[in-house]
Design a binder for these strands. Structure first.
Lengths: 339, 339
DNA sequence: ATGAAAGCGCTAACAG
DNA sequence: CTGTTAGCGCTTTCAT
């Protein structure tokens, strides 16, 4: 493994110049820069990130703390963040908190503190004040994705607005008996997404003069399976069956489609179904949904961090709570209600 | 941020003792060890991984190179590896190669070489000799998961045996017209899994005296959607329809179940379907499958690496190609063939 | 624009 | 079992 000294020798300059030429900080004449680059390439030289970090205090590494890896939303955010970081020459160190609670504390008490990361991205995690403070003390910027964290810049879609849009789509088609499959309480603890979506749903009904019928609400766990069971309850009722279901996630909506089929109902003729996400599977199922763009959210989180780590303009405007895009995608799971 | 010196002062010992007490290498009296730990806790001291790495040459960080994040197999392997590493106090730095080809080369030419990782786990990646050599030169152990890499210890299920087991299950039920949905060529380039599974399938047929009918093979892309379309082809044939389908992955098998339903066929009465994986969704669909355990595979990969990084016994036995467990899970998608 | 040299914070001989 | 000390490989003032 060639060191900086060898590169310096080969290029006929000092190690300081090599460092400057390769990192881009400080001025170096084009001539020396070329010589250094050529020498580095010839020797296959790559800076040691440890030595560099120790000397400079910057690691060029970002920590991403995330509760799940095997769910569409989370893996998509992760993918977006990874891409954006790689492009900028940053590494991504992953902390998955899917296990029990003590993993969480060890991540916050040890892993994140050992100076391995310059900043952290917390995905759908409600951090305690103490956790935030700990990071803050170290001067590590923190940005959240999905689920607001007090005093921390966070990227999160407007869940109420998204839910309202989905519901309004059904209302516009003429539906009035619109059921909702939302999150159960357990899910609401971590981030208030289910509540917010439900609020949007109820708001839309209310504005349309439709009374909210509590019997048309069913909780589930955001999985296909959970959505299936919830929808069976809703659609199996002998009287007053809803003509439409708004599910708080595409996976639950897909479960609802399958439940409808098993009950002999034709979607969308007998029942319309709409979800939120635009999950990978949604197109296949012809699911109408409100798309959110988690990959983009991951990328944007990186953008926000970079602006704080390497401000392009001195007056870095801290985007407090950037609104994120979403978009209704009408496919074949929604139609006018049965006559 | 407290440093080692302050801890040493507070504990009344030298920095060397602090280092030894906290890292566990070298002998320290229980008394000093206790004092050091107490002092460290009081000051909220955590070693700087950079300084430690630079001085010791060990980073306590493992690189994981993986082609997808949003597929069940891959995210499960990742999750397993992450858990196992966290438990041992290691970090995991992620390199996702899902983008274009140049991401791959930059990962191998720069990221992995900057001394940030002690070792790398390559998931379902066929590395070039050059890539392997590059890592080898740096003295970085490398272990593969899924898909053999020449001269590198690799954890991979016996795809042929797994496929054979699935097929034999169908044969034992009395099926003789057994179709196979396998990978298309594109998939075979990276790791020969599709070919191996097909070989197992054909071997089982052959041993049972059943002739392989090429018309009963359909390629797909390992997704639900792909499996759906392939199965429609297979099951839509007016004559000589297969009575069973063996899909090379659960996602394709699930697609097949959906296709059968759309064609008015009842599973398993009219057609039996079996997959490989035991995907999260398989139980919900009642899919009979051969389970593999990707989370375990990720954990085992870490075990193998640890044995090389921190040998427990001097005579570290390099496990060349550990066979991995798999298990037939019979559910409700397979039955005797229609009369 | 470039070089000399002083560390960054810790670990690992080496003594004792 | 513990302290002393010399680096680990690079970045960054401070001069020039």
């Amino acid at each position: 493994m060639a060191g900086i000294e060898e590169v310096a020798k080969l290029a006929g300059v000092s190690t300081a110049t090599v460092s400057r030429a390769l990192s881009g900080r400080g001025h170096v004449s084009p001539a020396s820069k070329a010589k250094v680059e050529e020498a580095a390439a010839r020797l296959g030289y790559v800076v040691s990130s440890n030595a560099s970090s120790l000397a400079s205090g910057r690691t060029r590494n970002i920590g991403v703390v995330i509760p799940f890896l095997n769910r569409w939303f989370f893996s998509s955010v992760l993918e977006g963040a990874q891409r954006a970081l790689l492009r900028r020459g940053y590494d991504l160190t992953l902390y998955n908190l899917s296990g029990e609670g003590n993993e969480r504390s060890s991540v916050f008490e040890h892993f994140l503190l050992r100076q391995r990361v310059d900043a952290v991205i917390a995905v759908s995690l409600e951090l305690t004040e103490h956790e935030v403070a700990r990071l803050h003390d170290l001067g590590k910027p923190l940005v959240g994705v999905g689920g607001p964290i007090p005093d921390v810049p966070t990227l999160t879609i407007d869940d109420a607005a998204v839910a309202r849009l989905a519901t309004e789509h059904l209302i516009a088609l003429g539906h009035t008996r619109i059921a909702h499959i939302g999150g159960d309480l357990e899910f609401d603890l971590d981030f208030h997404l289910p509540t917010n979506r439900r609020t949007g749903y109820e708001g839309a009904l209310h504005d349309a003069g439709i009374e909210v019928d509590l019997r048309l609400f069913a909780p589930a766990d955001f999985t296909i399976r959970g959505g299936y069971h919830a929808a069976k309850q809703l659609l199996g009722a002998p009287h007053g069956r809803p003509t439409a279901i708004f599910a708080a996630s595409d996976e639950m909506a897909i479960g609802s489609i399958l439940a409808a089929r098993d009950l002999g109902l034709v979607v969308p003729r007998d029942v319309s179904i709409v979800g939120i996400d635009d999950h990978d599977l949604s197109e296949f199922f012809g699911l109408t949904t409100v798309a959110q763009f988690p990959r983009l959210q991951g990328e944007m989180a990186v953008d926000v961090l970079m602006e704080r780590l390497e401000p392009s303009t001195p007056d870095a405007p801290a985007p407090a709570a950037t609104p994120l895009p979403y978009e209704l995608r009408v496919r074949s799971s929604t139609a006018i209600p049965p006559v």
